[in-house]
Nucleic acid binder design. Structure first.
Lengths: 135, 135
DNA sequence: CTGGGTGCAAAGTATTTGCATGAAC
DNA sequence: GTTCATGCAAATACTTTGCACCCAG
């Protein structure tokens, strides 16, 4: 879906500023606020910091983007995607996505706790293939 | 291990302030900075905010405590524990811990990506038993 | 047109730091 | 006694807000 439609579906006007923010997230995959700021300052120098804050918050609320929180790291933003796991390379810092079925674990938790599992967020600390082979 | 020993093992002096912070985390299981602040203001009103910040940061660095980051929530602190999963109740907000073996998933990731998995952090959004039965 | 969005400057929070004093070892 | 930690106040960093102007629909 185009970013223009994406915004309109969520009752947000398709301004150049918003499109620029979405493009940036798409390019980066996962971007910290700092990343977004830095990249935008080149692509669209007049886009103000308050606009970035305001829009990221709005898009979080409307579930267009999500926040990726990793211990000992800054928070990242990403375009909302289907269920996936984050693989965080402890060497180069890169974040990869990985599709995975976690129903087994969910069932196990439900059986042992009596809770109802709705959803999950999984992070794995890894050394990525590239860093492994670089050694 | 007593908190006094815990601190000394990490070359930190066992001050009443530090012990109070550790006790607070132990009581709460998972506490936000705000929780810590609020509880401490009763138990030890002269303990200053900068001391809380300084010590939590130091203890994070020395791996005495860890940070629990959950999307759409404030960050929590907890005493460092063995590998466990966090179950976050979407209804009452409570966080439970759950012990689980995740080797299967790790192996699956390694097989499919070529990465080396070091560690993992898993969160599950749940409706806890208590909230389920309260309906 | 008109309502919502933007930029700017200012306000509001959160976090860190420098330094003199005080406590742990 | 020394060294390290604390409290306070000040500095810095981060985030939000109010308002006049502007643009997408």
């Amino acid at each position: 879906m185009s970013h223009i439609k994406l915004l309109k579906n969520h009752t947000l006007k398709a301004t150049p500023q918003r499109l620029c923010i979405l493009d940036t997230l798409q390019e980066c995959g996962h971007a910290t606020l700092e990343d977004v700021q830095k990249i935008i300052s080149k692509k669209f120098p007049t886009l103000s910091l308050s606009t970035i804050y305001r829009n990221l918050n709005e898009m979080l609320q409307k579930d267009i983007v999500s926040e990726v929180k990793i211990a000992n790291k800054k928070d990242y933003f990403e375009l909302k995607k289907d269920k996936h796991v984050h693989l965080v390379c402890q060497n180069c810092g890169k974040i990869e996505d990985f599709e995975i079925a976690t129903d087994d674990i969910s069932k196990q938790i439900e059986a042992q706790t009596g809770d109802k599992v709705l959803n999950d967020t999984l992070y794995f600390d890894v050394i990525c293939k590239d860093c492994l082979s670089a050694k």
